[in-house]
Every structure is written in C-alpha cells, then in structure tokens.
Amino acid sequence: MCYFEQTRWSCGYWKWGNFRQQCNKEYRTGETCGLKLVYDTSYQPSQCKICEQMSKKTRRVRKMSDDISRWQREGNRRATIEKTQKDIQEIQSQINELWRGHEDKIRSV
C-alpha cells in the first residue's frame, strides 16, 4: 500500500508515476510493499500516445482508401490497388491491437 503519482488522460488511459510515500507495512528504506495506491492524480487534457498512434494510422488508412478510389477511376493500376488493400488490412489489424491494449488498460483501474 505504498503511494504513487498517477497520470490520467482525457480518453481514460492512465499510467503510474513516481513513488511518493512509503506505507507503514514496509520498513526497509527505498523498498515498496508491492501494493500501489494513488497519492495524487494529474489530469492531462490531451490524448494519450496510443490514441495519437491510432489517429495517425486511421488517417493513413483514409488516405490509402482515397488513393484506391482514384486509381480505380483512372484504371490500369491493378497491382498497386491490390498491394494497397493488403497494406490497409495490415494497418487495420495494428489499429485493432492498439485499441485492445488501450481498453484493457482502462478497465484495469
């Protein structure tokens, strides 16, 4: 039950910060008992790094989709379209993985 700072972003994501105060269960100097309690929470109005990464990847997927639409109208770009569609699927799976990690962290509070 040692006390730590906590940072929380507007999206609900959080992380532990620095050690602030030792509880009375741990008598060794510089050691913690292993249980973490919040000493103080610092609220950040911005998005967390994971949300920023998801935003970047979503914008990239949107751009690639627009490119595919343009290439289909122009014609004669079949291989490029197929490669870009595979890239979109790969990026979409990365976005899904980031989202799962983000949601797991939010629920773990």
Rank of each mutant, 00 (worst) to 15 (best):
R62I: 10
Y43H: 06
D104L: 12
Q21G: 07
G75P: 06
W14R: 06
S93G: 00
T7E: 14
R100G: 03
V109R: 07
Q47H: 13
L37A: 15
E26A: 10
S42E: 13
R100Q: 14
G17L: 05
N24L: 14
W14D: 13
K49Q: 06
V38W: 09
K49C: 01
Q44A: 06
W99R: 03
T58W: 05
D67L: 11
G75H: 07
S93Q: 02
E52M: 09
E5H: 05
L37R: 13
Q53V: 02
D40M: 15
T32I: 14
S69N: 14
C33G: 09
C51F: 09
R78C: 10
T41E: 10
Q53R: 00
K57W: 12
K25H: 09
Y3L: 10
K86I: 12
K15S: 12
R8D: 01
C11E: 01
L98A: 00
N76K: 13
G34E: 02
I68M: 02
T41P: 08
S93R: 04
R73E: 15
Q6K: 14
E31W: 08
Q94V: 15
W14I: 07
D40C: 14
M54R: 05
R8Q: 09
M64I: 12
G30A: 03
S46G: 10
G30N: 02
R60T: 11
S46C: 06
N96Q: 01
K36T: 05
R77L: 13
I91P: 07
Q89V: 13
S69Y: 13
E31I: 12
D104P: 02
R100F: 13
W71G: 11
E103V: 03
T32L: 05
A79K: 04
E52Q: 08
S65N: 12
M64K: 13
S69G: 14
Y3D: 03
Q22K: 15
K15I: 08
S46T: 07
F4E: 07
K63Q: 11
T84G: 04
E26Y: 05
L37Q: 14
R107E: 11
E74N: 15
S69Q: 10
C11M: 01
Y39C: 13
N96V: 00
F4P: 05
T58D: 08
W14V: 09
Y27F: 15
K49A: 07
K36S: 06
G101T: 00
D66Y: 10
C2Y: 08
W16N: 08
T84F: 12
T58F: 03
F4K: 01
Q85H: 10
I95G: 00
Q94N: 05
T32E: 11
R70W: 09
Y43R: 04
R77V: 14
G12E: 14
W14K: 06
I68A: 09
S93T: 02
K36V: 02
C33M: 04
K105M: 08
Q47F: 08
R8H: 01
R20M: 09
Y43A: 11
W71D: 11
S108D: 06
Y39K: 05
F19M: 02
